[in-house]
């Protein structure tokens, strides 16, 4: 835990009397309220998705950087945490967001039918 605050974190603590964890908590609560509110503002579909993704990114950053201490900890830990996202992105591009063939068009060895003991109910 980055208990030895430096730079802007120290400045924040001196100015407000509260540390970065408190303010991170406040910001997360505010953005969660915005997130829930966005669904009820009758925004367009695109605007709703944009709001949800934007808020999600801010909240994700707030939790990972400050509550999980990645902001202050060794860079290797950030790389460790980030590494599997490479595969998640490949997963998204390769399966979730590409073509209608993205499931049925996979190589045979990716198919459940490749192993005889399993049956496939894929359409």
């Amino acid at each position: 835990m980055g208990e030895h605050q430096t730079g802007w974190q120290k400045w924040l603590h001196d100015k407000t009397g509260q540390d970065v964890y408190f303010w991170n908590f406040v910001i997360l609560m505010i953005f969660t309220a915005i997130e829930v509110g966005a669904v009820y503002l009758s925004l367009t579909y695109g605007a709703t998705v944009f709001a949800l993704v934007s808020v999600g990114i801010v909240k994700f950053f707030g939790i990972a950087a400050f509550f999980m201490h990645l902001w202050d900890d060794e860079r290797e830990l950030t790389y460790t945490f980030a590494f599997p996202f490479i595969f998640v992105i490949i997963l998204f591009i390769g399966i979730a967001f590409t073509s209608p063939e993205s499931v049925m068009g996979l190589p045979a060895w990716c198919s459940p039918e490749f192993i005889g003991s399993y049956s496939s109910t894929a359409p």
């Binding site: 599997p84 998640v88 399966i95």
Partner: peptide, 23 residues
């Protein structure tokens, strides 16, 4: 280091769920 490696595997688990859901 161990808990971060564990969390690395957790990212893959939830990433798989999420990727399939987005599909």
């Amino acid at each position: 280091a161990g808990i971060w490696l564990f969390l690395m595997s957790e990212v893959m688990i939830f990433g798989s769920f999420f990727g399939a859901y987005m599909r």
